[in-house]
């Protein structure tokens, strides 16, 4: 009898030590990048960004397929894939990082929070440390993440030939807009 009780207690303990439901994710996040020069404005949209956030640890990861970027002009898209991003060689871009001020955000309460995010961004096979500030909005059990940051193309060994250097900005701005739902494990 004693043994049975003990077993029950242990099972309860074990259950409580299982990961709680504190991970949020999406597979249809949006990332837009834009390059603005006096000659030409270029904008590309990717609507199938994967983002996972562990609210407990503040770990945050993004991943997308470079081929998923859609441009207004077909030729831009071709050049992006063929010449600049070389999507066949480097199909993915990834970010792995952390919300540094995770303890300041209460994910159970609706509201707007400023999030400082730091981590490693991999584009075109090159990995660089990035840090930015964004917003985390908790609303009705969902989490929205918004951020804007800048990427210097040369950091990721993306070369712009002299002929079009007036058309493509050396630094492009990246806008993130993801709405995360609870990950049911």
């Amino acid at each position: 009898m004693k043994k049975q009780i003990l077993t029950a207690v242990i099972i309860l303990f074990a259950a409580s030590s299982l990961p709680a439901q504190d991970k949020y994710f999406t597979k249809s996040g949006k990332i837009v990048f834009s390059s603005k020069t006096s000659m030409e404005n270029i904008e590309a949209h990717n609507k199938s960004v994967t983002c996972v956030l562990d609210t407990k640890t503040g770990n945050m990861q993004f991943a997308l397929l470079m081929k998923g970027f859609e441009f207004e002009k077909a030729l831009m898209q071709e050049h992006f894939n063929e010449n600049y991003a070389e999507s066949h060689k480097f199909p993915k871009a990834e970010f792995k990082g952390q919300v540094i001020n995770n303890n300041e955000i209460s994910y159970t309460k609706d509201g707007n929070y400023t999030a400082k995010v730091k981590g490693k961004l991999t584009i075109h096979g090159e990995t660089k440390e990035v840090e930015t500030q964004g917003t985390i909005t908790v609303k009705g059990g969902r989490i929205e993440t918004d951020a804007v940051f800048h990427v210097t193309l040369a950091d990721y060994k993306i070369e712009i030939p002299a002929l079009v250097k007036d058309n493509i900005s050396k630094t492009v701005s990246v806008t993130i807009d993801c709405t995360l739902d609870l990950l049911k494990s």
């Binding site: 956030l53 991943a63 997308l64 990950l183």
Partner: peptide
């Protein structure tokens, strides 16, 4: 952990 693996990668 690799969080992306939890959702089966992208």
């Amino acid at each position: 952990e690799d969080l992306l693996k939890l959702v089966g990668g992208e």
